[in-house]
């Protein structure tokens, strides 16, 4: 393996040169295959921006959704409270039950409804002790709420409402659709690149035969084509990278870093755009490599 690697590095200039010559020779095909990668990458970039931000929104929302559990007025002792906390946390899907004393409840009530309720402060507080329960999967929040309601010491339990969970499941569906669409586009790009490489192989057929005649291994012959495929892929990724860099910056500035409210805070420009650009370049190279691999395994083997 080591001597082979040495050979690889020694002959690397050769591989690079033949890949370059071939790219120029098949300029039109290179251009069309690169354009396919380019379109795929632009869409991929847009999708990544949406997905990245939607994920961020979802995380924010999910962090905010908690079940408000009000205990019966019979639960007053510290021991009873500890036991209730224990029972709630035993329910699967529950992350944590955070205690909120009736004084705290009243404080929240006053914050929400106004100063007038401060007359109930102290001994007259009519409210009960409560818990704020966080869950690990927002889609199961309804089931969990119902389970909590059935507990003996619980008076009532409620959560933020259906609209938020609906939004989250909608976003999940969108994410799924995006992945499928991206895969299809990626396959189209792979196909176009493999076609370009196929033409390159055909036009160098004679050369390939001569290389085999003087003892060049299959891998040695394939390397220039694989480099060529990767270059086509990366050429296609360059413009989308530039668009990503300036486009997201522009959007971010124009919208002041958020969508309507700060619950929907946009991903910060750095490192978000950098991550997307890396994914585009690596994706382009991989798509190119895959296309080249398909063609080289398919079309290099019909002559001994």
């Amino acid at each position: 393996m080591i001597p082979y690697m040495m050979n690889f590095f020694k002959s690397f200039p050769f591989h690079l040169k033949s890949a370059g010559v071939s790219l120029i020779r098949h300029f039109v095909m290179t251009l069309s295959a690169s354009s396919a990668v380019m379109i795929t990458c632009i869409l991929l970039s847009a999708f990544l921006m949406i997905v990245g931000n939607v994920n961020g929104f979802a995380d924010n929302i999910e962090g905010d959704i908690r079940i408000h559990v009000v205990l019966n007025d019979t639960i007053q002792e510290e021991e009873q409270i500890a036991q209730s906390k224990n029972e709630i946390e035993q329910i699967s899907g529950v992350l944590e039950a955070e205690f909120s004393s009736k004084d705290n409840e009243l404080k929240l009530w006053i914050e929400e409804k106004g100063e007038i309720f401060s007359i109930y402060e102290g001994e007259d507080n009519p409210l009960n002790h409560a818990f704020f329960v966080s869950v690990n999967d927002s889609e199961r929040i309804e089931t969990i709420t119902n389970q909590i309601k059935e507990l003996e010491m619980v008076d009532d339990a409620m959560y933020g409402g259906d609209s938020i969970t609906d939004l989250i499941s909608l976003l999940n569906t969108v994410r799924f659709g995006i992945v499928i669409f991206m895969t299809l586009l990626g396959l189209l790009a792979v196909f176009l690149i493999s076609n370009t490489i196929k033409m390159a192989i055909y036009s160098r057929n004679n050369e390939i035969m001569i290389m085999r005649n003087v003892g060049a291994t299959n891998l040695f012959i394939k390397i220039p084509f694989m480099i060529e495929g990767m270059i086509i892929g990366m050429i296609g990724a360059i413009i989308p990278c530039i668009l990503t860099f300036f486009g997201y910056r522009y959007l971010f500035m124009a919208m002041n870093g958020q969508l309507f409210t700060n619950v929907f805070a946009l991903q910060p420009i750095w490192p978000f755009t950098f991550e997307i650009m890396c994914i585009l370049m690596i994706g382009g190279a991989l798509v190119g490599l895959l296309g080249a691999l398909i063609s080289t395994t398919k079309y290099l083997h019909w002559r001994r």
């Binding site: 082979y4 020694k10 002959s11 290389m211 003892g215 291994t217």
Partner: peptide, 11 residues
């Protein structure tokens, strides 16, 4: 030179 290059001789 190419015939010698593919079998891995040094420059």
């Amino acid at each position: 030179a190419f015939a010698l290059q593919v079998i891995g001789l040094d420059k």
